[in-house]
């Protein structure tokens, strides 16, 4: 039928895109990885790496802990999205929409925080301002 040729344009990948049934072992591995990262997060919070580094080297890296914990959280979320939510085997369209929310959220954080970071920087009047007024 002519429609097969036509529908290739259309992005229905009915024939190409079968639902993959993932192996049980994959789910278990992902779960164990999630457990590992959970314990790692808590460990990072309890044994404050920032303090340890400061004691050892005198170097104070501000916000190191929260960065470690957030990195771990991102890894955990990625694992869930990729394997539990099957994005790994999803079509390109699924990838785009799965990414869109996170990307747009980061954009919102960045734009709003750029205001907060720059607040109060330029409240000084230019020289000679008093004479004009």
């Amino acid at each position: 039928m002519a429609h097969h040729a036509a529908s290739a344009h259309n992005g229905h990948h009915a024939e190409m895109h079968e639902h993959h049934v993932m192996d049980v072992a994959v789910y278990w591995k992902v779960f164990l990885a999630l457990m590992f990262f959970l314990i790692l997060t808590v460990a990072a919070a309890i044994f404050d790496l920032q303090v340890i580094i400061q004691k050892a080297t005198g170097l104070n890296i501000r916000g190191l802990n929260i960065m470690i914990m957030l990195t771990i959280a991102v890894i955990k979320a990625t694992l869930v999205v990729m394997y539990f939510m099957h994005v790994k085997d999803g079509t390109r369209l699924t990838w785009i929409w799965a990414a869109a929310g996170f990307v747009w959220l980061l954009l919102m954080f960045a734009m709003i925080m750029s205001d907060y970071i720059a607040r109060g920087e330029v409240e000084q009047a230019p020289p000679g301002w008093e004479q004009i007024h």
């Binding site: 997060t41 808590v42 919070a45 309890i46 404050d48 802990n65 929260i66 914990m69 957030l70 771990i72 959280a73 955990k76 979320a77 869930v80 999205v81 539990f84 939510m85």
Partner: peptide
């Protein structure tokens, strides 16, 4: 799973920032 992901972020941000 999405509900789970939200919690993955909430947990460190709320519970673990206080040493």
């Amino acid at each position: 799973h999405f509900v789970d992901i939200v919690w993955i972020f909430l947990y460190p941000l709320l519970y673990l920032i206080g040493s």
